[in-house]
């Protein structure tokens, strides 16, 4: 049956429903368990193998030499990161993990560096 206004009952029904919109800063979205968010790096576990920097597709992870260290260790620039999780996957000692944090917009670029 072709009649105009096929959605009439549907739209009037939605008038009394709670809107589907998530009012973001007031309502928090549900973050799933294996979300790929901000990178966390555990220096005590790291063996300085450099696999993470080798596999990083965007060059966000680089090996940097620090004065107190003998070997260079990875430094992550979240401004370049794709959050693919390849570094965490390839790490033989689980020294890198991706957390559920996702809000890091900033005016200060240095706050995006994870060491």
């Amino acid at each position: 049956m072709k009649y105009p206004g096929a959605m009439l009952s549907e739209i009037w029904r939605h008038l009394i429903k709670k809107p589907a919109t998530v009012l973001y800063p007031l309502e928090r979205p549900q973050i799933p368990e294996n979300f790929r968010g901000k990178i966390e790096y555990y220096d005590d576990k790291c063996i300085r193998c450099g696999l993470c920097a080798r596999d990083c597709p965007s060059g966000a992870c680089t090996m940097k030499k620090f004065e107190e260290d003998k070997k260079p260790r990875p430094v992550f620039d979240l401004g370049m990161c794709l959050f693919c999780g390849q570094c965490a996957e390839v790490c033989p000692k689980d020294a890198i993990s991706l957390t559920k944090k996702f809000e890091f917009s900033t005016f200060d670029k240095s706050s995006l560096i994870v060491e």
């Binding site: 739209i11 009037w12 939605h14 008038l15 429903k17 809107p19 589907a20 919109t21 009012l23």
Partner: peptide, 11 residues
Amino acid sequence: KLYARFQHRVG
């Protein structure tokens, strides 16, 4: 507002 609520938005 009505248009938004018909579309299940907040408006």
